[in-house]
């Protein structure tokens, strides 16, 4: 582990943050925006982007979703068909399947909302070593939720590949996404 890390983890030179070898494959057991149970295996065969947020977010979530939507718009139609963006709501008490569906409808068809019980969400956030927390309610019952701002990218086999940070230039993200989408299963 230490040797491969020091030598550089991946056989692909990602321009965004390479997380291959650092993070485990995609695994979860959540509820989709259609109200059905959904597991990570359902997304095998597609490139998957994973983002944690909540629909009442006023800054990071809408900015990141719009940014991803616009980047995906620059990809070929065929590539777009092989891409899924999982918006994992860490605020399940407000983000029921209907709310999630309405929210992701603002973006392209690649966007899928998922959420789950506290245990299921904690298992997923622990797996990717991220965290979230809920703030105090104000007089209108509104509360803030702190959450990670990164987007995790997984290949068609569900293996972690790279991480997109807010500071990553647009061109770099597009290049890495094209490269990842260009890889076929078993390649």
């Amino acid at each position: 582990m230490l040797g491969s890390w020091l030598a550089g983890c991946s056989d692909t030179d990602w321009q965004t943050k390479d997380i291959s070898g650092l993070m485990p494959p995609l695994e979860f057991d959540l509820t989709s925006e259609s109200g059905e149970t959904v597991v990570a295996q359902a997304f095998r065969g597609d490139v998957t982007l994973l983002f944690f947020g909540f629909t009442h977010c006023h800054d990071v979530c809408p900015t990141t979703m719009a940014h991803l939507d616009s980047i995906i718009g620059e990809l070929d139609e065929e590539a777009r068909g092989d891409l899924q963006v999982l918006f994992v709501s860490v605020d399940p008490s407000r983000d029921d399947p209907d709310t999630l569906r309405e929210y992701t409808a603002n973006y392209g068809p690649e966007f899928v909302g998922v959420t789950g019980t506290e245990d299921a969400l904690n298992a997923l956030t622990r797996r990717y070593r991220v965290t979230y927390s809920h703030g105090e309610k104000d007089e209108t019952d509104h509360y803030d939720v702190s959450h990670p701002n990164a987007v995790f990218a997984f290949d068609r086999e569900g293996k972690a590949q790279f991480l997109i940070r807010e500071s990553d230039p647009r061109k770099v993200v597009i290049d890495d996404l094209r490269k990842l989408l260009g890889r076929r299963l078993g390649a």
Binding site: S133, L163, S167
Partner: peptide, 12 residues
């Protein structure tokens, strides 16, 4: 150290 923004902080 942007890892704490990327992964989220324990409290704001």
């Amino acid at each position: 150290f942007d890892v704490y923004d990327v992964c989220g902080r324990a409290w704001p």
